[in-house]
């Protein structure tokens, strides 16, 4: 299994991850090598095996729907790159 530079650009787009032009080839090479390593998995028949998502096979714990957190908006927004009137600012999305 080998990935092309094109594949890497597509994956990077899916992840909204900027990668330097000159690094694309080396990512393609590294990822292809990692995928080769993963093909070892196909050696093993896993037809009737239940996938394991969690070491304890635990179900999500639920809690009562009550307010437990105080309002921390100001504190959390103090570390944001750009805020105004309690809102996070990003470049204009709708013209």
């Amino acid at each position: 299994m080998s990935l092309t530079a094109d594949d890497v650009n597509k994956i990077a787009h899916l992840a909204r991850l900027g990668i330097d032009h000159q690094d694309v080839e080396s990512y393609a090479k590294d990822l292809s090598g990692i995928l080769d390593l993963m093909t070892q998995m196909s050696e093993l028949n896993t037809d009737n095996v239940e996938p394991m998502a969690h070491p304890m096979d635990q179900a999500q714990r639920l809690r009562a729907d009550v307010v437990t957190e105080p309002d921390n908006r100001e504190k959390f927004q103090a570390i944001a790159p750009q805020v105004e009137a309690g809102l996070y600012l990003v470049p204009k999305v709708i013209e």
Partner: peptide, 26 residues
């Protein structure tokens, strides 16, 4: 991030992620 995004992308999920979770069980 690239590796994980690829493994979870449409068409590859079963071959990689699901397979890996089954091996995790074993």
């Amino acid at each position: 991030i690239l590796m994980g995004t690829y493994a979870l992308s449409t068409g590859y999920y079963d071959a990689y992620y699901l397979k890996a979770q089954k091996i995790r069980r074993l």
